[in-house]
Design a protein around this nucleic acid. Structure first.
Lengths: 188, 188
DNA sequence: TAGCACATGTAACTCGTTACATGATTTG
DNA sequence: CAAATCATGTAACGAGTTACATGTGCTA
């Protein structure tokens, strides 16, 4: 049984054949708003998937000095992916370093606390801007597919929409927090 | 330098002295919507914090068969916590199994896909209900403190507010997804 | 009298990150 | 000619989960 990382790789390969290097690239930023992995994790996992007969590779010639191994799904791999997708997901462990800091924010100097929150707010703004660019790309490149749940574009767009919504709500929450901090201690 | 887990424990001890067992209990559910740990992680970490002179313990007698070690912050521990709080947090790795499934949702049978999303929606509803109960407890027990950023209650309430907002947005996103899935493939 | 809550620890394992290792081709 | 990109792997480490280990007092 593959790990979550294994299913992430199967999910990418279900869309198009790729080399280990290309998978590693894909697993950092673009897909990275809901999963990520470094190349040192990807290569062993690919070998595992292959020994489980869920993927196969063939050597193609490419730019690098090494063999370029292009991987693609086997029918068994495709089945394993589709079965895993509809099983309920484990509840997220919910580890968030920023929230952990907020929980102890009362111990910090007020001015520094405010800085922390406004900085975080800016980061959410940057992420939001990037997601909005991606959304424009969808509208440009696949306007009809993004409304059709049977397409890979729809699935990708659905995850993007969650990212957009998440960043917007995070910004609103930061705004509320700054407001509260600016109001300061109430001595009533 | 303590790990995030270490700072989580310091954050709890800054509020009140506790035993390792009590810390372990606290690190599962109630604080658990932004951090969690099992007791097998807590005990070694406490020993580490103590050897770094950030916490101290004294043995008190309690119900169990073992020694009850009650831990509390040292002044150095309090300083370390306040310093860490205002340092910018690392961007969350953002691993979300459910989103990973959604990314490959297009490979699944439509009816099963719908089931998956509605189930997830229900889970978010349950979490929301629990958070709303907690919010009522704040209103009941600490109505004035929750508006004063210098109190521990405010900090806890701020994290709770983020949980509430997160669940509400997640439910709205699930609603959108189900709507899209019900509309089905568009053959235009 | 069986099971649960209390109470503290260790060991084995999985998952993920960072660093090590190699080396060709393209770009500034 | 130095640096980045391409391209694939291994090794060491840290964080987290699950299982192992022990033993008391209370409750159904």
């Amino acid at each position: 049984m593959p790990s979550n990382l294994g299913y992430a790789l199967l999910g990418l390969l279900a869309r198009a054949p790729r080399t280990g290097y290309q998978l590693s690239q894909a697993m950092r930023e673009p897909i990275g708003f809901f999963w990520s992995a470094s190349h040192s994790q990807v290569y062993p996992e690919l070998a595992g998937l292959e020994s489980a007969r869920l993927v196969r590779h063939r050597v193609v010639d490419g730019p690098g000095p090494r063999e370029n191994k292009q991987y693609r799904l086997t029918p068994a791999g495709r089945r394993a992916l589709a079965d895993w997708v509809v099983e309920p997901a484990a509840p997220p462990s919910g580890r968030d370093e920023f929230l952990l800091k907020i929980y102890s924010l009362w111990t910090a100097e007020p001015a520094r606390a405010r800085d922390l929150v406004t900085k975080q707010r800016e980061q959410h703004h940057e992420m939001l801007a990037r997601y909005q660019e991606m959304e424009q790309e969808f509208v440009r490149d696949a306007p009809s597919e993004m409304a059709d749940p049977s397409t890979r574009q729809f699935s990708a767009y659905a995850t993007l929409r969650r990212g957009l919504s998440f960043e917007r709500h995070a910004i609103a929450w930061c705004d509320w927090l700054v407001e509260q901090l600016d109001a300061g201690p109430r001595r009533s």
